Amino acid sequence: MNKFESTFRLLMAKKVICEHSSPLEHAYLSDTSDRSDMNQYLSRIGMTIVKTQDGLGFYCGYESIDNTRKKNEVLKDFETFSQTMEGIVAWLKLARNIDLDSKPIMAGGKLSESELLAAIEESNSLQNQLNHIAHKLKRGNKSKESKTKLRSILDYLVQEGYFISPFSTGSLFIATAKWSLLYETLEFIAINEGMLESEADGENELDTQMELI
């Protein structure tokens, strides 16, 4: 499989491509000429490459939301995200509480499972946070052991593309640029909360929101 094909497949699978998750494909899209070739191909199906605001990742979006099918697909993706949003935001808070520098998770950032577990097991507050996350994400929530819950949550975040685990033991996790897209989505929600309920501008306002998402 050549770089064009592998990149196209990742874009169509709704992946966020960054140097940590997909280094070859990220290098391909970082080249202006190659990205232009891909955009020309994607334009045939009404899609285009979007770069995250921090410049760390690429993903695929519609050039415009101009029909019901596209609107429904975007709404479906947004609803799926909404179902796990609270659990993922709670995870961000947990990770930030454990980090001595209290830094948000960014692409390239590293997490050690053993260090996370040690911190959680020493704090009732962190254990309660972990229990809340396990419940919201429905991962390891039936287990009484923090170790099992933590591993289930980390495996889920790898499955969803937020982390990669470069070693077979899975003890080290590297964040991807999907966190960049998450922050942009949360910012959009914070700024435009209640737009769908507003009756002032009707369908035009919905069109604007769809395009922004």
Rank of each mutant, 00 (worst) to 15 (best):
N131Y: 06
Y59S: 09
A175F: 02
R139A: 15
E199M: 07
G55M: 07
S21M: 06
I65W: 01
E122S: 15
A190H: 06
A90F: 02
L137A: 14
E145L: 11
E187A: 15
G202S: 11
S171D: 08
S114V: 14
E25Y: 00
T176F: 01
D54I: 04
S30V: 09
D77C: 10
S146D: 09
A134V: 06
T148K: 01
K70H: 01
T80I: 05
M47P: 00
K70Y: 01
V50A: 09
A119S: 07
F167A: 15
K149V: 13
L92D: 13
N141E: 12
D101E: 08
I45Q: 10
L56W: 07
D34M: 13
I105V: 14
D201E: 11
M195T: 15
N2P: 12
L92C: 15
S36K: 11
L172C: 07
A95Q: 07
S36A: 14
I153Y: 03
I45T: 11
S112Q: 06
T32K: 08
L181F: 08
E145H: 05
W91V: 11
W179I: 13
K51D: 14
E86M: 07
S64F: 01
F167I: 15
I105G: 02
G140D: 09
R9F: 12
S82N: 06
G87L: 11
E113M: 09
K138G: 09
F163K: 03
M1H: 10
I164G: 00
Q127G: 14
I164Q: 02
S180H: 03
K14T: 14
G161Q: 04
K14V: 15
E63K: 03
L56S: 13
G57H: 01
L24N: 07
L10Q: 07
K76E: 08
S143T: 13
E86K: 08
A90E: 07
K51A: 15
G55R: 05
L206G: 04
A27F: 04
K76Q: 04
L137R: 12
E79V: 11
I213S: 09
N128V: 15
E113F: 10
Q53D: 10
S82W: 00
R139I: 08
I45H: 03
I189C: 03
L56P: 01
N124F: 03
E63L: 09
M38N: 02
N2Y: 06
D99C: 11
L212F: 10
G202I: 08
K178P: 07
H135P: 10
M85G: 04
C18P: 01
